[in-house]
């Protein structure tokens, strides 16, 4: 039986992601773990997160999990979700500037103030709801997910990677921003697959069957 570790570092509830992973692939052993050894023993690792980046990084640094995640990023399939994606960049401008894990070179920035759509209606922050995900390249995690499918988002900051080659998908709000990153065995998404109904479950299923190689 293959296993997936959901990193539990005290940021938000993991109920949804655990249930969704179990639902997506009942044959996989899903466990919430806070312990470095257990994370390193698992076949795959999910790095979730909600809330503020400063609290997130503080929890990771104090528990020693920062180094563990960096090690996982070098060795086995890793899926970052929402704040778990943002934490993989070099730094975030949230909370007055917060150094992050630097798995992907780049920054996390806030949506510009006073956004408007084409008709002059103001766009709300957080970017909350179902928006289209435009896949930029084929990838095992996009298997059986139609181009421009809608996933559920809720966030006010987004990733700006230095290297455009790691961009896996973009979403428009109103300009295109990077909503998914991919590099070798690491995949990260700004949206919540565990809250995105059928397409979300499909992405989780794809991750749970992924060997960490890109096509």
């Amino acid at each position: 039986m293959s296993s997936v570790a959901v990193i539990d570092y005290g940021m938000g509830n993991l109920h949804s992601i655990v249930k969704a992973l179990q639902h997506a692939a009942p044959e996989v052993d899903v466990a919430c773990v806070a312990d470095a050894d257990a994370i390193l023993r698992a076949d795959r690792v999910v790095f979730p997160g909600v809330g503020a980046i400063r609290d997130c990084m503080q929890a990771l640094n104090q528990s020693g999990l920062s180094a563990v995640i960096q090690q996982v990023a070098e060795s086995k399939p890793l899926l970052g979700i929402c704040l778990g994606m943002q934490a993989l960049l070099t730094d975030s401008e949230e909370n007055g500037g917060t150094p992050c894990l630097d798995v992907f070179a780049g920054h996390v920035v806030h949506f510009p103030e006073a956004l408007t759509d084409g008709e002059g209606n103001s766009l709300k922050i957080p970017h909350m709801g179902w928006n289209q995900v435009h896949q930029l390249h084929p990838h095992p995690l996009w298997k059986n997910i139609p181009q421009d499918s809608r996933f559920y988002f809720v966030h006010s900051y987004y990733a700006q990677p230095d290297n455009a080659a790691v961009m896996a998908a973009t979403t428009q709000y109103p300009e295109a921003f990077t909503c998914a990153l991919a590099q070798d065995n690491v995949f990260a998404v700004q949206f919540h697959p565990e809250k995105s109904q059928a397409v979300g479950l499909q992405l989780l299923k794809n991750f749970l069957h992924w060997d960490g190689h890109v096509l």
């Binding site: 766009l123 970017h127 709801g129 179902w130 928006n131 289209q132 435009h134 421009d148 988002f153 709000y173």
Partner: peptide, 8 residues
């Protein structure tokens, strides 16, 4: 292409 309005 934009954010969908939600029905709850």
């Amino acid at each position: 292409m934009s954010l969908a309005k939600r029905i709850i």
